[in-house]
Design a protein around this nucleic acid. Structure first.
Lengths: 207, 207
DNA sequence: CGCGTCTGTGTTCACTTGAACACTATGACC
DNA sequence: GGTCATAGTGTTCAAGTGAACACAGACGCG
């Protein structure tokens, strides 16, 4: 995370390896695994690098525990939700079968205001039909499958394509409205398939 | 993450504890730590619960490695950036000193399109001055400290308060423009302190 | 040169931890 | 009552692992 300037080149290498190993395998490496990676003949050299890293605050350790190295910025309780990003056309998404996802986005559950075990999915927004809700092309919208309430923004399956619209009720009948006056209301002829209700949005880039 | 219905009550308890332990300490618990938590007298009972969980796909293991339990949904290579969220007034933020942050948001670095060790911070947007860029009150804007380029959206320090504006150049002179015609351009009288350039945005809630 | 820091070697020890086996108890189901 | 899956006990073993010590080479610095 941090390029601490007070680290020696070797210490930085070790730190990078530890972080990389955690990313790849999910657990921190043992001293001997680090040793093997650098081709060292003794675990003690590694141990002092690790000690130095801890001394300098670049690493944190659960003393005595195996594989107890972790980021100093470790924040307890921050559960992650892993959100699959489907394309713009997630036809048949509500099935239980695992859909092929383009990407995954990991976000802190607390930041999104959802439970840690929330089942979310995401769609990339295409078009400008929700511009009135300040949702633009390229935005990634997080959705959760649940019953929509009036004024919720929902992803609905219409003609085999998924679109983002606001969910409204009029005289007990549900219909969808774009947040753009150039689009007409969508009054479902048959049935309305709601795939999910928007719970958040992620935009990347500055423009 | 998943409430697998085929798990027995005890197995679910063990699974929950493993996940909770990972969240709190950052590493997965050893069999004996699980044993101690449930007040069992033998590590072997735990071992078979864990075996069953792996069998049912609710857990994944690095065989033979200490503390090698992890989520089956583990996605290698997803480095996280831990983003401190300052308030609406991060006065003097560019200092090296660690500022008190209200919250932290963890996001997948790849999803944000930034390097894994990017130094980001976040601000909660107040006001409607950037409505034209579809950034509204309550949005959380991710920023990185770097030199702004024309058309970048930046957080600038004006009169001790941080505001979000678009960065522009005219005849070599920098000035700031709100994306809302009701706000005038800001032409810096003295110097322009740019705290960061916007690289992303997170919105929570549906409205 | 002498000093200190960083780096690496070879080795030893004790604790941690996963893996395994035989046996018992409980409850569901036929 | 018999059978089976789930759950738990007591124990043993070997591998994984952190921690430690003495010693040596490389390098910068005064």
């Amino acid at each position: 995370m941090t390029d601490n300037p007070s680290l020696t080149a070797r210490q930085q290498q070790v730190l990078d390896f530890i972080h990389a190993h955690q990313r790849e395998t999910g657990v921190s490496p043992s001293l001997r695994e680090i040793q093997a990676h650098f081709g060292l003949a003794s675990p003690f050299g590694v141990q002092r690098h690790v000690d130095a890293l801890i001394e300098k605050g670049a690493l944190q350790r659960l003393a005595g525990k195996a594989r107890g190295l972790l980021h100093p910025a470790h924040h307890p309780g921050s559960a992650l939700v892993n959100i699959p990003v489907f394309g713009v056309i997630p036809a048949g998404l509500p099935t239980d079968a695992v859909q092929e996802a383009d990407t995954h986005i990991s976000v802190d559950a607390a930041s999104l205001g959802v439970r840690a075990n929330a089942k979310l999915f995401a769609l990339r927004v295409r078009g400008d039909s929700m511009i009135g809700a300040n949702i633009v092309e390229g935005d990634v919208v997080f959705l959760t499958p649940r019953e929509p309430r009036p004024l919720d923004i929902v992803a609905a399956l219409i003609d085999g394509e998924s679109t983002l619209k606001r969910f409204l009720l009029q005289r007990g009948r549900a219909f969808l409205r774009a947040e753009n006056s150039r689009y007409p209301d969508l009054i479902p002829s048959t049935e309305l398939i709601i795939q999910g209700v928007m719970v958040g949005l992620l935009r990347t880039g500055t423009s």
